[in-house]
């Protein structure tokens, strides 16, 4: 996919660009806010990665300018500021996701992947389907091969989150933020335990395993690993 990276830290920008290109993305770099804004407004990108503090123009100002111009391009805000409150500001300004420095390339890659393949509002409600696993958000009902599966409210949310990112890698942090709205590292393997519980519920007794662990990255829910 085509990515615009607006980052004034040249070295960091170069490393990130190299990493993203190796993952098969086309990356265009901008090193200050003004250039970033002009390039972004010209359009043609699948995802924008914006640093928060930029010379000439703050990253949030670029977000606002884009949103005011009617652009719906997914934006990931990168920041070296503590994300406790900055995250809220970034998302409020119109950003779609927020990642604090220093980040893992895998984490960033997974997040932009999720952003770019974000489903439209139409798909947000209603029924989700992966192979023979079906989830009805309105009836709060899950079936696998027609058989009803009993889940707790949180397990349901977790499955819904995974199904909305079908075929994509979701990291532990993404799950933590997306399902629990927790923004800290719980330091235990608690996410893995929740996942394995869910796996028990949806995959046990079925030939095709849907919930897969991606070593060193996270999880993915797919019938085509």
């Amino acid at each position: 996919m085509k990515i615009l990276l607006v980052e004034d830290d040249r070295r960091a920008s170069d490393y990130l660009t190299k990493g993203l290109r190796e993952l098969g993305h086309a990356v265009e770099q901008a090193f200050d806010g003004e250039t970033g804004r002009m390039t972004a407004l010209a359009g043609g990108f699948d995802v924008l990665i914006l640093d928060r503090m930029l010379p000439k123009l703050d990253g949030l100002e670029i977000v606002k300018a884009l949103r005011n111009a009617g652009s719906t391009v997914p934006i990931l805000i990168l920041s070296a500021l503590d994300e406790v409150d900055e995250r809220v500001q970034g998302l409020r300004a119109g950003g779609d996701d927020y990642l604090a420095k220093p980040y893992h390339l895998e984490e960033l890659a997974a997040r932009i992947d999720a952003l770019a393949r974000r489903q439209g509002d139409a798909a947000r409600s209603g029924r989700l389907k992966v192979a023979d696993l079906e989830l009805d958000t309105r009836a709060r009902k899950v079936t696998r091969a027609g058989r009803k599966i009993e889940l707790t409210a949180r397990e349901f949310q977790l499955l819904e989150f995974l199904m909305r990112h079908t075929g994509q890698v979701v990291t532990r942090t993404m799950i933590l933020e997306g399902v629990w709205d927790y923004h800290f590292d719980p330091k235990t393997n608690v996410i893995d335990v929740h996942i394995s519980r869910l796996r028990q519920a949806i995959d046990k007794g079925h030939d095709v395993q849907l919930l897969h662990t991606i070593r060193g990255a996270g999880y993915t829910l797919t019938d085509d690993p």
Binding site: D9, Y15, A80, L105
Partner: peptide, 24 residues
Amino acid sequence: LDSTAHDLRGHLNRIRAAAQDAHH
């Protein structure tokens, strides 16, 4: 606090990117 955080995280970010590249 913010500028210290920004500075330190910026440095760490560069170091990590370089280390990751080297590792890779």
